[in-house]
Design a protein around this nucleic acid. Sequence first.
DNA 1: CATGAATGAGCTTTCATTCAT
DNA 2: AATGAATGAAAGCTCATTCAT
Lengths: 216, 216, 216, 216
Amino acid sequence: MGAVKGAKAKRMPRAVRERQMMDAAVQTFGQRGYRAASMDEIAELAGVSKPLVYLYLNSKEELFTACIRRESRALIAAVEAAVEPGIAADRQLWAGLAAFFTHTAGNPDGWAVLHRQARTHGEPFAAEVAAMRDQIVAVVTTLIGAAAREAHRDRELAGQDAAGLAQALVGAAESLAGWANDSGDVSAKEAAGTLMNFAWMGLGNLMVGERWSPSR
Amino acid sequence: MGAVKGAKAKRMPRAVRERQMMDAAVQTFGQRGYRAASMDEIAELAGVSKPLVYLYLNSKEELFTACIRRESRALIAAVEAAVEPGIAADRQLWAGLAAFFTHTAGNPDGWAVLHRQARTHGEPFAAEVAAMRDQIVAVVTTLIGAAAREAHRDRELAGQDAAGLAQALVGAAESLAGWANDSGDVSAKEAAGTLMNFAWMGLGNLMVGERWSPSR
Amino acid sequence: MGAVKGAKAKRMPRAVRERQMMDAAVQTFGQRGYRAASMDEIAELAGVSKPLVYLYLNSKEELFTACIRRESRALIAAVEAAVEPGIAADRQLWAGLAAFFTHTAGNPDGWAVLHRQARTHGEPFAAEVAAMRDQIVAVVTTLIGAAAREAHRDRELAGQDAAGLAQALVGAAESLAGWANDSGDVSAKEAAGTLMNFAWMGLGNLMVGERWSPSR
Amino acid sequence: MGAVKGAKAKRMPRAVRERQMMDAAVQTFGQRGYRAASMDEIAELAGVSKPLVYLYLNSKEELFTACIRRESRALIAAVEAAVEPGIAADRQLWAGLAAFFTHTAGNPDGWAVLHRQARTHGEPFAAEVAAMRDQIVAVVTTLIGAAAREAHRDRELAGQDAAGLAQALVGAAESLAGWANDSGDVSAKEAAGTLMNFAWMGLGNLMVGERWSPSR
DNA sequence: CATGAATGAGCTTTCATTCAT
DNA sequence: AATGAATGAAAGCTCATTCAT
């Protein structure tokens, strides 16, 4: 993860070459940032010449956009694959969060591209990432809706509210991820547990000793 | 808000010029990003020549650092001014959050510098903003501890727990602030309310219709 | 001499372009000095764009260092090629001096780079040229030692003495070279003759034991 | 020597201020070189504001020229003061050389300005230093002429020859000075002695008509 | 007598991008 | 399918020089 094949191998099929380039690009964009990443560096890391990068991916902007799309799809796929429909809503949420932490921890450059770089560099890219966020929000909203119905309540949360809550959840997750990494050895599942405690039970309940647990 | 005096006025005292330059820098860095912002643009926006910017602020890096510091101080000051010691912990938290959202909404470029740009562009700057964040997290941790004691419970939250929760809360707030600014039509008080609902009550309670309210 | 092909010829192999650039650089550095020479001027004189100069030679400092090295090697080679081992020491010395004056006269910009510019602009460059000078001084020291032995005298010049005399001789030669170039109308052979007259008649006496003393 | 008064003292007579500026300028030009020396640095070292430097000395070029003139005069004066007319020519030469070594060793920045910087930076300055050199050459020529007459020889050395010899002498002196400094503790008088050994024994023979020739 | 404020012009360096092969 | 050669444009930074006070 992170390291990219540098060994020169000539005449590879286009799809393979393209993947190598995107791997190199994600790594470079994630670590250096959009502006600081140079096409030279990306090409060298991918083990190809610069004109080839342009032949396949047209421009720095398109390359960055392609990276955002690829990483978005991968993240969404990881989260969606983890959520088992049919089980209780809170369990689904927990599974989704765990998958989110696992994927971002195992793919830090991709996550950096999505979370830090794409939102930092103006309209063309921010829109791209907003679309992905909307998809995640939709998943969360659905889960919350389902939970509300489970609770036998007609009054669902309004869309705006759900969007805000999803924002807060992702922000809390990001923050926890950074803190957990710095504090040493907190696993993705532990982080998901902590976050569920916070999000599902609320501080008010936590303070009177209640806890959320996956095996509740 | 954002707009800077463009009218050329010659021979101003250094302190005034410096403020103009920093205003222009915050605006430019916040909107374009650290790399994309050019010293030319900053100078022009400030209504001075580039050499003067260098004479007073030495380098792009120092200028950016100065912006981060100034905006950090302003944000901390705004939050601390809002928190009235002595009242109930949840009310204090709400007041702090409201001040936070108010300040970031009224100062979007400054907030972008702190939240988006400074953390995206490497160690010298990230450290600067991390220090400020730690100050805020410390305040929140204290509030959560106080709230736990108020709940007349001997069993306090462990230090680690409180710290983790504070991290999650601050992350959620940061994320919401960006979202509220972008969405345009969410007021600071609404955002603070949403977050208190989420954080204090927990999703579990929200879905069965309970709400947190400041006038509880 | 000095003039460089200005005719634009596109797509030349790297080695050729590099030589053109170095030619232009030596000319420009020699005439303007290190600081006053601009990369723009060098690139234009070489008939290429500035980025190409940087692509091949990395920086002004490295370019200057490369010039010093190339000119050093050329000068040493010219002198060494002229000295025929086996003939009398004074004839060897004369041949070396003549070659030295011929080379510097035919290559005034290169000589200016070595003698005037490199020594004037700080450690990185001065060290480079000092190494070359030491090589020449070593050769001359050896010659003087050999001459002393040829004089059938048991009392050789002490090592220190020979080294000091070599220093003085090389210094005198360097000084004369600059003067001969500036005066225009002094040929290399004339300069070599003048210096031999001055130096050898003195050395001749020293080697048979005579000394000058203030209290003579 | 070298260090310049930095203490601020207001309202000094013009002559004093000018001297302070020139001291600072010589030091800065000598150490940094003409181009690398900045008027800012000179003004600060002199303890005055930049406009004052311009008021008194008009421009960087004029300032540099003034430095060259002042240092030239000082060097010439030192040498001329040491040469006692009436004593033997070789003793006079020795006295002059000793004074030269003493002055340049005690005034390294001034000597650097004359020997390294002035000759390195184009016409306006090179001419200035050439004039000084001519004066020294004239002194040496006179001495040699006197010596030739002392030797009861009618045939004097031609002017060109004398100029070349003076060049060689100064070059040898410079070279020896550098070498002596690096080798540790060779005093000005010792250096002068070594050089006289080298030069005078040679000159002595030249003046009685001997010549070296390649076909000897 | 002395200076704080200010700038036009130029420098080194980098980068995204394109030919010609 | 792939690349070595080449560049226009712009960015960060510095400096000699001048006003207005």
